[in-house]
Nucleic acid binder design. Structure first.
Lengths: 208, 208
DNA sequence: GGAGTCAGTGAACAACTGTAACCACAAATG
DNA sequence: CATTTGTGGTTACAGTTGTTCACTGACTCC
């Protein structure tokens, strides 16, 4: 007790986080499958062998990055997908939330978009699982919506998957226009809004 | 004339194609940014230096692979997007075409999905340009459709982009279920069909 | 048919990689 | 306080990488 336990663990977490940060930064210009363990430790200023104290391999680090990038995003689903005055308001809210997230964490978004179909199987699986969780959360939220009356479970899942994919597309579109002229960015936002709106229109007339 | 010119060029093209094939095969389990030039030449059974006779770098080879994977796909747009008896028939046709293409050229599809957001900038750009061409072709085809009356140019482009993205999503979904049990594959096909149908419904009610 | 072109070879290079064994020393434990 | 634990450092190894250079020998052209 007198030795204030946890000093050591705190330091360990600190270097672990430094490794994650350095890796994420290095991954802006390459894929995970070409990321070397020495490269990461060099960027942190730590011995190569120290890497093993935190991760088995770079693939392992990649899985941790998936958790970091997507794990904290789940609470946002409820607030985003919850019913609004009208559909357009909900769409605007979602688009703004995505734009804000991309602007705040561009490297994380880039990492997910890149490694979703990337060359490292465990990372692909981790991303797939997280996205499946998102889809399930969206489905649950859609089910509470009044306009979901008469929808089959299959169709609800289909729609939830469509929304999740569309949000990823939107995020990666915003990422590409991050350092583009203002008018191009505005055009991207408008395109994303209309695409979501078209899906929304399809949704309201689905049961015709 | 008597010397039958072209024997040399034919041989060169043959090894070039062998390099492309070997690279594509190696890329099933890794990303382009980690593909080594020696790795490719070793797989072909040729000296490392021979690589330079055909490509400046692996990034250059990647751009050539983009051309190979997407270049020959443009003619398919017209036949796929051309009007049909009813919308559902057109959707079925498109889904079957995608499924067939994925089954026939899985490595190409995987390569495009992987490198679209991959770590090699010139390859990303090449893919983006090809997809932009697809979107333009889809837009042109949509414009001839009777149901496009009253649509703005902006909205037509928006819809074309949505279709192209959705086709890529569908292709990568089919790719994931390539060696999955039959019922899961059927479910994937059904999901893809319904997602396209929902977009189609949104399209017909867009001007309300 | 002789000269030139050029796809592919082989050896050599400096730099890099992942990983192993062993060591140092501060923190945690009793 | 003495002992154990475990993060991180050091050194070393065997393999790999991209790129260079001078070369061979078959094909092409005049």
């Amino acid at each position: 007790m007198s030795h204030t336990p946890g000093v050591r663990q705190a330091q360990k977490r600190k270097t672990r986080q430094a490794l994650l940060d350095a890796a994420l930064s290095l991954l802006e210009e390459q894929s995970l499958s070409s990321l070397g363990l020495r490269e990461v430790t060099r960027a942190v200023g730590v011995a190569p062998t120290a890497f093993y104290r935190h991760f088995h391999s770079t693939a392992d680090l990649g899985v941790a990055l998936v958790e970091e990038a997507l794990g904290s995003l789940h609470p946002m689903i409820r607030t985003t997908m919850s019913p609004a005055e009208d559909d357009d308001e909900r769409i605007d809210r979602a688009v703004e939330l995505i734009a804000g997230h991309v602007a705040a964490h561009p490297a994380h978004v880039r990492f997910i978009a890149r490694e979703r179909h990337g060359g490292v199987q465990p990372v692909r699986r981790a991303i797939r699982e997280q996205l499946a969780r998102f889809a399930e959360e969206v489905r649950a939220e859609l089910a509470t919506d009044a306009s979901a009356a008469g929808w089959s479970e299959t169709d609800l899942r289909m729609l939830a998957g469509l929304y999740v994919d569309q949000m990823l597309i939107t995020a990666s579109l915003f990422l590409e226009t991050l350092d583009a002229p203002d008018d191009e960015r505005r055009r991207a936002v408008e395109t994303a809004r209309r695409q979501l709106r078209l899906i929304s229109v399809g949704r309201t007339h689905w049961l015709d």
